[in-house]
Design a protein around this nucleic acid. Structure first.
Lengths: 141, 141
DNA sequence: TATTGTTATACTCTATAACTATA
DNA sequence: TATAGTTATAGAGTATAACAATA
């Protein structure tokens, strides 16, 4: 392992952390936390998912995701439905209001970032676009 | 290529979040949380800093950073020193044990990511390297 | 026995509001 | 008045351990 790879890893780790915290300031009017928004986003993108699948997809523990889902159920944004083929499983589905909320939240929360991307050169935008794919790929390992 | 800026923003946001949470699993033996590690890292990279500078650099509120520093002082990893020119300011400095800890932690925490980077193509590594710089740049705005 | 979800518990991180001391 | 730091408080997010139900 070369020194270059280690310092590249450090820079990427701290950059991703700092970037995420910067983005947190742009929540505007939305009352959805990061974890709740990410869970709803998974459901909007991928359709109904089990608790375990949601936890794995978002890289948190199952109890942690379960608690996030509890809050979202209380607020009426998702519902737990039993799996007819496996009594242990539950499938989490978006309600109509949940789907509306996550779409509206996405527009609001990402508008600041979209503005920043617009000021970058096409080359830099391409770098970040490819990086987003890679970050998701590495996170999935 | 033409990428819709909003969907690019969404993908980048969720990717950075998922990536950060994936990295959290690789804490191994270190007993340093993300925020504490990031604060110590700032001090190691940039030298002594004020509370406000640390807060701004890491994109958290001043009270949040102040609390993180309180914990680090309690554990003996940093010290508050008065600023001779401005009685309101304090300068936070790493202790010897703090400097040792953050260096060791960095080696441990980033080893998994460095291994992942090693499996990527040189082109993909270059993309992530440039992206790290851009993420830090955008976070600073 | 193994897997899926859940509950209980404790800890870290975070922000807003209010306060102190200094400039 | 304005700025830097601090304290108080509340809330979100997280993990581990232990438990229940089903496979």
């Amino acid at each position: 392992m070369t020194v270059d790879l280690r310092s590249a890893a450090t820079e990427l780790r701290l950059g991703a952390l700092r970037f995420s915290r910067r983005l947190r300031w742009e929540r505007a009017n939305t009352d959805l936390g990061d974890a709740a928004y990410a869970a709803l986003g998974s459901l909007l993108n991928a359709g109904p998912l089990s608790i375990g699948a949601l936890a794995h997809h978002n890289r948190v523990s199952a109890p942690s995701m379960n608690r996030t889902i509890n809050c979202l159920v209380d607020d009426g944004y998702v519902e737990r439905t039993p799996d007819p083929e496996d009594g242990r499983r539950v499938t989490v589905i978006l309600t109509d209001t949940g789907a509306e909320l996550v779409a509206a939240t996405r527009l609001q929360r990402d508008s600041w970032l979209a503005e920043q991307l617009a000021t970058l050169s096409p080359e830099d935008r391409e770098v970040l676009h490819r990086a987003a794919i890679l970050l998701n790929e590495v996170a999935a390992r």
